[in-house]
């Protein structure tokens, strides 16, 4: 298991957003998380990537505990040095890309490896160019984010996350901010990563994509995991009424 999340609890001002969520991600697995907006999908990703702190439960990366419920019932995180290591395990691709506008595309991808991980400039640039080639935008290395289309920016964001060589890559609705004709180029890249056995968790509203690419689908609603399993089972033969109801909306 690369990631295990056990009995995760998260509250915002007393409102329970995640209620006793448990799931694991195996090496090379692609997990899609679907569900209506406000169901807690994004919050779950933000907890897994440590952008939000949990209120209870366990987060375990590579068999090591990053967070657990302490004696007083509140969550206890590992020390700052250890957290650095846990942060290194995971990468996150945002809905809004969040590229650094004042850095060139190349610098967006190389800066963190150089200044956070201590990789040499030459090695970081070589690696970045290889990633850009894979993303089909190697000619954009010297451009700035504002000069790129949304689809291109999101591919740069994926390259930036990949450059840190994470064990697991999270996507938070990676195509939701894109025009419909640009979603394809981003999904294609994610599909390509899946073929290379990159471990990924994707929060998405792209049902055909989730069905085609993922090994497992998790359906969340109202802060709980309602149903999970093989995508063919969840999409074609859902067990729970709430899943059926949700999927019916997409058939129209």
């Amino acid at each position: 298991m690369i990631l295990e999340m056990k009995n995760i609890e998260k509250r915002f001002d007393g409102l329970e957003v995640l209620k006793d969520i448990s799931f694991g991600v195996d090496h090379g697995e692609v997990v899609s998380i679907i569900g209506p907006s406000g169901s807690g999908k994004s919050t779950l990703l933000r907890c897994a990537t440590f952008l939000e702190t949990i209120d209870g439960g366990e987060i375990i990366y590579m068999g090591e505990k990053a967070a657990h419920t302490g004696a007083d019932g509140s969550a206890v995180y590992a020390g700052p040095q250890e957290m650095k290591k846990f942060r290194k395990y995971c990468g996150l691709v945002f809905q809004q890309f969040n590229l650094f506008p004042h850095y060139s595309i190349l610098k967006n991808i190389t800066d963190a490896p150089i200044h956070v991980q201590g990789v040499s400039k030459a090695e970081a640039e070589e690696n970045a160019m290889a990633l850009l080639r894979k993303m089909g935008i190697e000619d954009k290395a010297d451009a700035y984010p504002y000069q790129l289309s949304g689809g291109q920016q999101q591919r740069v964001a994926i390259a930036r996350a990949m450059a840190m060589k994470p064990e697991i890559l999270f996507f938070d609705e990676p195509t939701s901010a894109l025009d419909p004709e640009l979603t394809g180029e981003v999904l294609k890249v994610i599909r390509q990563l899946a073929e290379e056995k990159m471990t990924m968790v994707v929060v998405t509203h792209e049902m055909p994509f989730a069905k085609a690419v993922s090994n497992r689908v998790i359906f969340m609603d109202d802060g709980v995991i309602v149903e999970q399993g093989d995508p063919r089972d969840v999409f074609d033969d859902p067990k729970e009424d709430r899943t059926k109801q949700f999927l019916r909306v997409f058939e129209r």
Binding site: L51, N98, L99, F100, A161
Partner: peptide, 18 residues
């Protein structure tokens, strides 16, 4: 400055000062 800039930096492991 959008909060996403801080979050992107945090996920990439930059320190607060960086």
């Amino acid at each position: 400055i959008p909060v996403g800039q801080y979050e992107a930096a945090e996920v990439l492991g930059y320190t607060k000062t960086q």
